[in-house]
C-alpha cells in the first residue's frame, strides 16, 4: 500500500474507531491485509492506530468528564487477564473458526444495538454542570447531553464482566483488539450511556494496545516508518472522531456503531 493510501486508511479507521469506541484495528487490519500486506505486519499497525486514537481522544474526553475510569479499570482487569489466556491458546484454534465466531459476535452486537429505540438514561433537571463526572467509590456518574445532565449507573456487573472477559479473550485470540465488543457490552448489557461506553472503551483499548505493541516491538514486527505514518494519521483521525462523538446525538452514534459492527461481521464471515 502506498504511503498516502496508508495514511488515509489510518485516518478514517481511527476516526470511526474513536467515534464508536471500537478501537479501529478491527477495521484497519482487514483493509491492510486485503491490500496485500502480510497479517503479521498489519496487526502491529492496527494497534498503533488504536493507541494513537486513544491518545488523541483522551484530552477532550477528560475535559468533558465523559470517561468512567473506575468502570474502565474494573473491567479491564478481567479483559486483560482473558486477553493473556487468549493469546496463550491462540495457536490451538483455527483461523477460519475464529473468523466465524468473531463475525457472529459482531452481528449479535449490531442487532441488539440497532433494535433499541430512544435514550435509556434520561436527563435529571436537578443536576448541574458541577455534578458531571464519576461518582467516587461507585460505577456511576453523570454525563452532559446538550444543556442537560444525565445520571447513570453500571448495572448487571457480573454479566458485564463476562462480556468484557469475552472481549479480552477475542482480542488475545485474534490480535485485533476488543473495543468493538467492549462498547456494546457496556452500553447494551451494563446500561451505560453509549457516549460514556465509547469513551471508556477508547481509554481501555489504549491500555490493551500498549501491551500488544510491547509484544510486537520485542518480536521486531513494527516497521517504524509505517508505524509513524499510521500514528500521525491516527492522531488526526482520533481528534476528528472524538469531536464528532461530542457533537452527534447518542441514538445516531448507536446506529452508526451498529451499522459498522454489521459490516465488520459480514466482512469477517465472508473473508474467512
Amino acid at each position: 500500500m502506498n504511503p498516502a493510501a496508508l495514511a488515509f486508511a489510518a485516518f478514517l479507521t481511527a476516526a470511526v474507531g474513536t467515534l464508536g469506541g471500537l478501537g479501529g484495528a478491527i477495521l484497519l487490519v482487514p483493509i491492510l491485509v486485503l491490500s496485500g500486506m502480510e497479517a503479521k505486519f498489519a496487526a502491529p499497525l492496527g494497534l498503533v492506530s488504536v493507541a494513537a486514537g486513544s491518545l488523541a481522544a483522551a484530552p477532550q474526553q477528560l475535559r468533558a468528564r465523559v470517561v468512567n475510569h473506575r468502570l474502565g479499570v474494573a473491567t479491564e482487569i478481567v479483559a486483560s487477564s482473558a486477553a493473556l489466556v487468549g493469546a496463550l491458546v491462540s495457536g490451538f484454534i483455527g483461523q477460519s473458526l475464529l473468523a466465524v465466531l468473531l463475525g457472529g459476535v459482531a452481528l449479535v452486537a449490531a442487532f441488539f444495538g440497532g433494535r433499541r429505540k430512544g435514550i435509556r438514561n434520561l436527563p435529571d433537571p436537578s443536576l448541574t454542570a458541577a455534578d458531571v463526572g464519576e461518582t467516587p467509590g461507585t460505577l456511576a456518574g453523570v454525563y452532559p447531553l446538550g444543556n442537560e445532565f444525565v445520571p447513570y449507573r453500571a448495572k448487571r456487573l457480573p454479566l458485564g464482566l463476562i462480556g468484557m472477559g469475552m472481549a479480552g479473550l477475542i482480542s488475545g485470540l485474534s490480535g485485533v483488539g476488543g473495543g468493538w465488543v467492549k462498547t456494546p457490552t457496556a452500553s447494551e448489557v451494563m446500561h451505560v450511556p453509549v457516549k460514556v461506553a465509547a469513551a471508556t472503551s477508547t481509554f481501555t483499548v489504549g491500555v490493551t494496545a500498549a501491551v500488544g505493541l510491547l509484544v510486537y516491538e520485542s518480536q521486531g514486527r513494527i516497521v517504524v516508518s509505517d508505524a509513524a505514518l499510521v500514528a500521525a494519521a491516527g492522531l488526526v483521525g482520533g481528534t476528528v472522531g472524538v469531536r464528532l462523538q461530542h457533537l452527534l446525538p447518542p441514538p445516531l452514534v448507536r446506529r452508526g456503531l451498529s451499522f459498522t459492527l454489521a459490516v465488520i461481521g459480514v466482512l469477517l464471515i465472508v473473508r474467512r
Binding site: V48, A51, L55, L213, V224, A228
Partner: peptide, 20 residues
C-alpha cells in the same frame, strides 16, 4: 526518522500505563 518513529511508538506504549 528511525529515532523519531521509535520515540513515537514508545510514547504510545507508555502513556496508557502512566494514565492508570
Amino acid at each position: 526518522s528511525v529515532w523519531s518513529g521509535t520515540a513515537c511508538v514508545v510514547i504510545l506504549i507508555a502513556v496508557p500505563v502512566l494514565r492508570v
